[in-house]
């Protein structure tokens, strides 16, 4: 059964690692839903967060495959329940939306968002939340006909257990 799996990998911050990891998905024809690479809490070590819809068997194979790569220090896959996952989204909406009787603050509160930029033509609002929350807001704005542009950060995650501790041990042991 396919469901969302999030692969988290810690790697040396070296050129080509991203390409090597994504080939594991590409060769199995699996679409990557979101991908984030940034420096982890340890300098020189990158953290990859890759979300995809696939089967348990496939994500297990991908994880083993990725673990073989020379630059990979640690890799595991997670169910979305294992992780605290948040995304940031920016929505550019038409200023007209706020020209009615309702106050701007009321609308923003309703969406759990805050204003980032205000111009006569458009307003940019920012929202942090789960993917579902972000998508729900997007749908509402879209249906109202006011959404001009939309962008999402991809998942920013923290494990409920401490991954960095595992990583620190790993580096010391090697």
């Amino acid at each position: 059964m396919n469901k969302e799996y999030i692969l988290i990998a810690f790697t040396e911050n070296q050129i080509g690692v991203l390409n090597r990891i994504t080939t594991c998905y590409l060769r199995r024809k699996i679409n990557i839903e979101s991908l984030k690479v940034s420096e982890s809490s340890i300098k020189g070590i990158s953290m990859f967060v890759i979300s995809s819809y696939t089967s348990l068997e496939t994500i297990t194979k991908i994880t083993k495959h990725v673990s073989n790569f020379v630059e990979v220090l640690e890799v595991s896959y997670y169910d979305s329940n294992d992780l605290i996952t948040q995304e940031i989204a920016l929505y550019k909406v038409a200023s007209d939306m706020f020209s009615g009787s309702e106050r701007v603050d009321t609308i923003l509160n309703q969406f759990g968002a805050r204003m980032v930029e205000l111009t006569p033509k458009y307003i940019v609002i920012e929202k942090t939340g789960t993917r579902e929350e972000i998508e729900a807001t997007r749908d509402k704005l879209d249906q109202s006909g006011n959404l001009i542009e939309f962008t999402r950060s991809g998942s920013v995650v923290l494990h409920r257990k401490s991954i960095d501790k595992i990583l620190n041990n790993l580096i010391q042991n090697k």
Binding site: I15, G16, N19, R20, T23, L26, R27, V70
Partner: peptide, 14 residues
């Protein structure tokens, strides 16, 4: 060459 050989090498480097 680095991109092309990524899936068929154990390691590559430019």
């Amino acid at each position: 060459m680095v991109s092309m050989t990524t899936p068929i090498t154990k390691w590559n480097f430019q």
